[in-house]
Computed example of a mutant assay.
Amino acid sequence: MPRTREPLDTHLLRILQILLTEQSVSRAAIKLELSQPALSNSLRRLRDITGDPILVRGKTGMVPTSRGLELLAHANDALSAIDRITQPPDDFEPARTKREFHLGAPDYLDAMFLPNIAEILRREAPYAKLIVHPINADYDYVGSLEDGGLDVVIGNWLEPPPQMHMARLFDDEVVCMIGSQNPVAHRELTPKLYLELPHLAPIPYVTTRQSFIDGYLASQGLQRNIQMTIPYFGMVAGMLLRTDLIFTTGRQFAQHYARYLPLTILPAPLPFPPMRFYLLWHERCHDAQEVIWLRQCITKVATMLGASLGNSRQNPPTRHPGKP
């Protein structure tokens, strides 16, 4: 039965490196602040572990064996790796990073929120990459946060996932959006009329839960008349301009499209709570400097947009026909 060899610890690995670098037991002992007998004992242990003399006598002193030169290269690599493990990470520098960031978000945010995030990243981290993953009913964003596929997720929920770290970003007022050609655009929108009208609705991006709007209505014992559902918010404006459908959404989204298209924004006829947007991330990257920086960038954008939403609520353009 072969004899079990002694394991090689970091201390012996460091001695191996210095012995092979200095090629002298006495010089290595001085550098390592060890006695020569102690170092000679360590050399014997290393020879036993590696099965090689490591250093042999030459004409002018000790010289490494062929295996010893190979072991020196391995020792250098191993000790460098250990140093990287035990040393704290370098300070994160956005201007120099080439990191690839992964952000999950519903395309509801495409028109206003994400472009502002992209602007900050291009200005402050020009070598970084940003990959935006669309959050929909088929995407397991919780699993992706856990396994590293995503760094952060932005979304709105009546009840955010409890197992994640969470930061509140901003609140958005719920309004109704309709094509200006629709006769309802010029009528008072009562709760009864609202529930009876044909609604356009997005497919919820969490399969096990209702959307924010329908979740609230269900809590009040109400149900709207959803006639069409769509997978992408970018389809909303075109659908409203060509149909008699009504769409319930946040003021920020509605105002963006009403600036350029003949769309009318109506006050919601029911006391919906504000659409509250959250930033989610997993414990695995809670203390990662680069992800902390990304979260700060997102929070900065949210603060800016939240301020603009506050101003718009003071003078809301509730009936805005837009531009032809």
Rank of each mutant, 00 (worst) to 15 (best):
E70G: 15
I15C: 14
A111I: 07
I49K: 03
A137C: 02
R27H: 11
S40R: 11
M177Q: 09
G58P: 07
P88F: 01
D147H: 10
D171V: 13
Q36T: 15
F170P: 00
E124K: 08
M62C: 11
V56T: 15
R224M: 07
A288S: 07
L114M: 09
L103D: 08
R209P: 05
D77E: 13
N311Q: 12
V142R: 14
E33A: 13
G179R: 03
H74T: 09
I265C: 02
G149V: 10
V132L: 07
E146G: 14
D91W: 01
I15D: 13
D107S: 15
T60C: 03
P267D: 10
G322K: 03
S40Q: 14
R313K: 07
L240A: 08
T10G: 08
F212C: 04
G221M: 04
R187F: 07
E196H: 03
R284H: 06
P134Q: 09
Y205L: 01
G322W: 01
T4F: 05
Y139M: 12
I117W: 00
A81N: 07
V142H: 05
A81H: 04
G221N: 08
K31W: 01
G215Q: 06
R84E: 15
F272H: 03
A73R: 06
T299E: 13
T50I: 06
Q36R: 12
Y194S: 03
L13P: 12
P271S: 05
A254Y: 04
H186V: 06
G149E: 10
M62A: 12
P115K: 07
L294M: 04
V184W: 03
A38R: 11
A258F: 01
Q17V: 03
L12P: 05
I135H: 05
L103M: 12
L240W: 02
F253M: 11
T249M: 04
P162Q: 07
Y108D: 08
E188S: 06
P53A: 11
V184F: 03
H165W: 10
S312K: 05
E196A: 11
R251S: 15
T207M: 09
N116I: 04
M275H: 00
L13K: 12
L263I: 10
K98T: 13
P53Q: 07
L71E: 08
G104W: 00
N41A: 15
I30N: 13
A258L: 03
L309K: 00
Y205D: 01
D52G: 05
L109E: 06
M228T: 13
I178T: 12
H286G: 05
N116V: 06
S26M: 09
G58K: 05
